[in-house]
Design a protein around this nucleic acid. Structure first.
Lengths: 120, 120
DNA sequence: TCATGAACATAGTGTTCATTA
DNA sequence: TAATGAACACTATGTTCATGA
């Protein structure tokens, strides 16, 4: 029984949701998460985003396609990696999200309890 | 910037509160915490309780006294270690608790955001 | 600088082991 | 078994480096 949810699982959750909304590639998702969590005092490290993406591919949830970032190859040669659900990826993702939800609720319970027990 | 609160800090918080209420020794606090968090799917490991207590002593928050558990030394030779606040321990503990409170709130914010962002 | 990836290093943790006023 | 403590092992993570459509 672990204490808190792992950062990896937390990031995977967000990545899945982002892929559901067909949003972006690794670096972009990283920047967006950093932006979103900046005010929460949390900046997900770059390595974790890529590791999480690789794991989701490994687990058969996502597959990758490559693409040039700009639409004019004469000016923009930057290659990016896009992620999509595999045939059964959406289903797997759904199950995964359910598990993570359980864990999030568990963690919230623990933290709320701690606030109640130790303050006020 | 860390992701979630460390287990160590979390346990220290509880230990401080328990010492405030002059409750118990290491093993007893361990059992009580396990009892309390059982339904939350969390069982703090024994090593963490002792490590946390040692750190609090190291940091000058607590000091130790030893005592036989039973009141009749002829039947009960079990020695236990009791913890008390040092001269400035209470003050230090208060500051520490404030810091942990901040971190708990930060974590709660992150987790709540995750629930909002990824479900519903 | 953007974008991806891997290598490396380490802290925090979980598991076992040791000891016994 | 209760109680304390330490040793050991490991995994998740953070940092740094490498590369380039």
């Amino acid at each position: 029984m672990a204490f808190m949810i792992a950062q990896r699982a937390f990031i995977k959750l967000y990545l899945i949701t982002m892929v559901e909304q067909h949003r972006g590639y690794g670096y972009q998702m990283l920047e967006e998460l950093r932006q979103q969590f900046k005010s929460h005092g949390y900046a997900p490290p770059q390595s974790e985003i890529y590791r999480a993406l690789h794991e989701l591919v490994q687990e058969g949830v996502l597959y990758r396609t490559k693409q040039l970032k700009g639409n004019d190859p004469r000016v923009d040669f930057q290659e990016i990696v896009l992620y999509h659900f595999t045939a059964d990826g959406a289903e797997k993702a759904k199950l995964y999200k359910q598990q993570v939800k359980q864990d999030l609720d568990r963690c919230l319970g623990i933290l709320h309890k701690a606030v109640n027990d130790n303050y006020g």
